[in-house]
Amino acid sequence: MKLKHLWKAAGLVALSAILILTLCLAGLLALVLRSAQITQFWNAPLTKLSQSLVLEEGRYHFTGEDLLAQQDLWLMLVGRDGQVLWQYNKPAEVPDQYDLLDVAAFTRWYLEDYPVQTRIRPDGLLVAGAPKGSTWKLTISLSEQILHLLPVWGVLLFFLSLICVLALAALLLRRWFRQDQQARDEARSDWINGISHDIRTPLSMVMGYAGQLEADSALPPARRDQAAIIRRQSQTIRDLVNDLNLTMRLDCQMQALRKTKLDLAPFLRQTAADFLNSGLAEGFSLALDLPDQPLPSLEADEFLLRRALNNLLINCVRHNPPGAVIRLGARQTGKACLLWVENTTPDAPAPPLYQEEDGGPAHGTGLKLVAQIAAAHGGQATFFQGETFLCQLRLPMRPS
């Protein structure tokens, strides 16, 4: 999964989080508006009920029975002396006499568990009561300082929630990415292993018959030379197949490193001797450049490190005309050890370098493998091009 795909997924999650938060805020706002409507619906009848209760000739006349019936309310008027002057459908358990403390209590809360609302009139206090359990009354007090901080807290909580959602999404995306990457790596590994196996069998036959033709003295020299070319090119194909397998395993982190203590001077001498004994092409020379003082030891996989150096040496022979001088050397630099392979070609341009961005030239697979082996050891491979071709491997020294 590319980085832009991860950003798209993160943006989608962020938009989802914003949508969810918007819906929650809209729902909360709708609830508040609905509550306000209910409160207005509660207060509006109380105003009308007060207008419907009129004192005429010492008696109260009431015309708002329909309003009471709509909300199942009861009504009473408490005089200034605390005595109930008038009532309509008042429950029997509700008292007929009140003192100052009683009035102060039920005007804010409940009267005998009945939620009530009150309205002051010139002749007393009009009290409207609803059925028990129909309304929840709660008084909330906030300081102005806290009220001013509420928007800030809201914004902070929004971003905190958004960060939590994005973090959870990142964890899930990372897990899915790993699973998807593992499946792709396994599929690629199976495909490359299958192709490599299919190539090796006919390639071995080609190399075997080419070797026999090359050694057959009955053939003309030109035919024997052609057989030698076939054998060498077949070996090149075999090396490329091996490099492809190893590159894939290192790229997918499927190649376990078998690190051991490695003394560099004997290791480099043996590498140079093996390369010379394998048949260095005519017109090439190999020189070993080692310092006078002892080299440090490394924690390295001997097989992989030898493979990297062999690839560089073969690259110098394969892509240079006869007369090239190849140098293999090492030295200590700071807390690292520097290994290099260099070739100098008189009156000839240096070979093209490996470039990871565009896949490099045809011989780039071997150089890519060199870079991967260096990275697997915690080091770095650097390629230089000028009058000479130079590759430096900077590897960490073995801790003392």
Rank of each mutant, 00 (worst) to 15 (best):
K2W: 03
K2T: 11
V13K: 01
S16P: 02
A17Q: 06
I18F: 10
T22Q: 14
A26F: 15
L29I: 14
L29R: 15
R34N: 11
A36T: 09
N43Y: 07
T47C: 05
E57L: 12
R59N: 12
D66Y: 01
D66E: 10
Q70K: 09
Q70A: 14
Q71F: 02
L73G: 06
L77C: 10
V78N: 01
L85G: 06
W86F: 06
K90L: 12
P91C: 05
E93N: 13
T107W: 00
R119F: 10
I120Y: 11
P122F: 04
D123M: 04
L126G: 00
G133N: 03
S134V: 02
Q145L: 15
Q145R: 15
L149N: 10
V152L: 15
L157G: 11
L168S: 10
R175W: 15
D185I: 07
E186N: 09
A187E: 08
A187L: 12
A187K: 14
A187N: 07
N193R: 11
G194V: 00
H197F: 10
D198T: 05
I199C: 07
T201A: 13
L203H: 00
M205D: 14
V206F: 07
Y209A: 04
L213M: 03
E214W: 00
L219K: 04
P220E: 13
D225W: 12
R238F: 05
R238H: 13
D239R: 13
N242C: 09
N245W: 04
L246Y: 03
M248W: 11
L250N: 06
L250A: 01
L250W: 08
D251G: 13
L257V: 04
E282K: 09
L290V: 08
P296A: 09
L298C: 03
A300M: 08
D301C: 03
L304Y: 02
L305A: 13
R306S: 13
L309D: 04
L309H: 02
C316N: 14
V325G: 06
I326N: 00
L328A: 06
A330N: 03
Q332F: 02
T333V: 12
L339M: 01
W340C: 00
D347V: 04
A350V: 12
A350W: 07
P351S: 14
D358A: 05
G359K: 06
A362C: 07
H363C: 11
H363R: 10
G366V: 02
Q380D: 12
F384Y: 15
F384I: 01
E387V: 02
M397N: 08
R398P: 04
S400D: 15
